[in-house]
Amino acid sequence: MKMHLKSAFRYQFKSALKSAIIFCLIMLAILAVFSILAVGGYEESRATFVGYGFSAAIFMFVIGIVSIRSDLRLCLQLGISRRSAFVSEIFALLALSAALAVVGELITGAAQAAVLTAPSKHVFVGDLYQMMYLQNGFLQLGFFQHILSALCNIGLIWATCLFGMFFSLMFWRLNKAWTVIVAISIPILLNVVPWLLAKAGFDPAPFFTWMLRSPFFYILTCLVIAVFIGVINWLLLRRANIKAV
């Protein structure tokens, strides 16, 4: 069966792009404000800008929550099947994650270059990859390192985005009673499960040690999580009744 992904992809990517541009502008503004505060005459003040990847992941988590339902409705109204709508949504969000990661590298790269040339080095600009694998506060990343950093961010952002989609789809499928039960259970489980695991002697440290050995292990972990959540999302959507608001 031929899938009509092109138009759905174009619509889905474009509909989230505007919010992504606003997000990037806000991040730039935050960086600018931090830099002005740190460089502009306050000798003791220091500014740290290391949260772009996480911020982008949280932003895309929200996009994952809000976009899936409206995009599915629109696609089904306009003759695109739920499978094609879902696949194109996954790829549109992956493309957007990649775009955000690339923009992140451009911002951090430019800011790091600016910091190195500035007389006052009170601003620390970095990102997740740098903190996890380089641990060098004032290092300016090379091209290959930027690629690795971007890949790390793409993995994180995409997986988080699919996680947001999962919550949206799960609550879409649940009836009122189950919505309340699940909403109450999630924070309880988040606290109880780690405690139970610790009680049972489960130690996650070896896994994190393994992941910190190479950025590729981290990227692989993110991809495995993304694929796993993606499959669950499809199972949730496969037989869902797509209704208007």
């Binding site: 069966m1 031929k2 899938m3 009509h4 509909s15 409206s70 409705r73 629109l74 089904l76 109204q77 003759g79 695109i80 099947s81 739920r82 499978r83 094609s84 209704k243 208007a244 608001v245």
Partner: peptide, 19 residues
């Protein structure tokens, strides 16, 4: 899950499916 078949059908429903 068939785009070819679905693209031949347009439903004007009671409720709005557009954002």
């Amino acid at each position: 899950n068939n785009d070819t078949a679905l693209s031949k059908v347009f439903l004007v429903a009671e409720q709005n499916m557009f954002p």
